[in-house]
Simulated assay, not measured.
Amino acid sequence: MELIERLSAIEERLAALETSAPPHRDTSGDLWVLDNLVDSVGFAGDVRTGASHAQYQWQRDTTTLLGEDWAPHITRLAALAHPIRGHILRRLLEGDATVGDLVDEEIATSTGTAYHHLDALHAGGWVSKAAGGRWHVRAARVVPLLTIISATEDH
């Protein structure tokens, strides 16, 4: 049954792509424009990491994004804004890890440091802890995380 559902989803995506206008460059030549996605921002990904496989797609209209309170979003972003947290997230994308693993692998200098950074990432919704004290990046956050990293590249 799963295969039939997956095939149906692929066929729906293909039909949507075939009926939408093809992308074209805007007048400045710097951006690609999809006419059927006017006034929206979106991202999607199909990612395989050492830890998991994540498929995710998100799209929001700009009116909503510009009209809502950004404080929760900034809080989630702030949780990422530390080099040790970046190292932790990269490590967790390879596979679940305990605090002891992070210290043993010299990603964190002590268990206290590891917990401090994991707590911040957890509060931001980026990671969760499973049985046995093993931490992982939440599946729903893998593609958004990599999108953020990609968005910070020099364009």
Rank of each mutant, 00 (worst) to 15 (best):
A81Y: 02
G67Y: 03
P72C: 07
Q55G: 13
R138N: 09
T62W: 02
L14K: 11
R13Y: 11
D69Q: 04
G112S: 12
Y56H: 15
D104E: 11
A120C: 07
L14P: 00
I84K: 02
G132C: 10
G29F: 10
A54K: 07
G133V: 02
S52T: 15
G132Q: 04
G67F: 05
S128P: 00
D30Y: 15
V103R: 08
L102A: 02
G132S: 04
P22D: 08
D30W: 15
F43M: 03
L89Q: 07
D26N: 14
A139H: 12
G100D: 03
A44P: 01
V127P: 02
G29V: 05
S20Y: 12
G100K: 04
R60L: 12
A78K: 01
W70Y: 02
H53M: 13
P23S: 13
L118V: 03
F43D: 01
D69K: 04
A114M: 04
R91F: 08
D69N: 08
L17C: 11
A97P: 05
T98V: 01
E12N: 12
V33P: 06
T49Y: 10
D96K: 08
H82A: 03
L14R: 15
D61W: 02
T49A: 09
W32Q: 14
Q55K: 14
G100W: 00
T63N: 11
N36Q: 06
